[in-house]
Simulated scan of single mutants.
Amino acid sequence: FLKAFPMRVINIHPSLIPAFQGLHAQRQALEYGAKLTGCTVHFVSEELDNGPVIVQACVPVLPQDTEESLSQRILELEHKILPQAVKWISEGRVEVEGRKVVVKGATYGTLPVNPQLEDFV
């Protein structure tokens, strides 16, 4: 399937890949002692959670976090970045060169508090 549709299938993963691939990414982040984690929308490749990154969002790992509380904060961001990635792709703005993904017309850098993700990566 992936060979028939290269760089056309996307996935959302609850970590900042390439960190914490596979199942229970939030648990992995907590066990590792990560200070930041988040979520990634990426193109699907034949390797698990290893395709080129389209967009990522991060959250701090708080001292009191449980797997559930961390998962909930990450899920809130997943609900923002997945539709944004789909929008960019549908507008023809996403270009892939090897592992590098560029969104045409996007501003790259740090987002302000309570951002509108419309044109940021």
Rank of each mutant, 00 (worst) to 15 (best):
R73C: 01
K35S: 09
H79R: 13
G105F: 03
S69V: 01
K87F: 12
Q84G: 08
A29Y: 08
C58G: 14
S15F: 07
T66R: 00
V94C: 12
L117V: 14
Y32D: 00
H42A: 15
M7I: 00
A34V: 10
P63N: 04
M7G: 01
S71G: 15
L111P: 03
L82R: 14
H24I: 00
T107S: 14
E95W: 01
Y32Q: 06
L36Y: 12
A29Q: 11
F1C: 01
E118G: 11
T107Y: 04
G98H: 00
V96Y: 00
S15N: 03
Q84V: 04
A19S: 11
E46V: 02
P60Y: 12
G105A: 05
G22P: 12
V61F: 06
L2K: 02
K35A: 05
S71A: 15
E68R: 14
L16M: 00
F120C: 09
T66E: 02
K104A: 14
I12T: 12
K104N: 10
S71C: 11
F20A: 01
F5K: 15
P18V: 09
H42F: 13
H24C: 06
H79A: 07
L111E: 03
E118N: 13
L23M: 08
A19G: 00
G51K: 14
L62K: 12
V96K: 01
L23Y: 02
V53A: 09
N11K: 13
P115V: 00
F1R: 03
H42N: 14
K104P: 04
K87H: 15
S69N: 01
K35W: 00
V101D: 01
E46C: 06
R99H: 10
K104W: 04
A29E: 09
N114K: 13
L48V: 14
P6Q: 01
Y32N: 02
G33S: 04
P52A: 01
P115G: 04
S45C: 14
F1L: 04
V59D: 08
E78L: 03
N11C: 06
L117D: 04
R93E: 12
A19L: 05
F1I: 00
F43I: 15
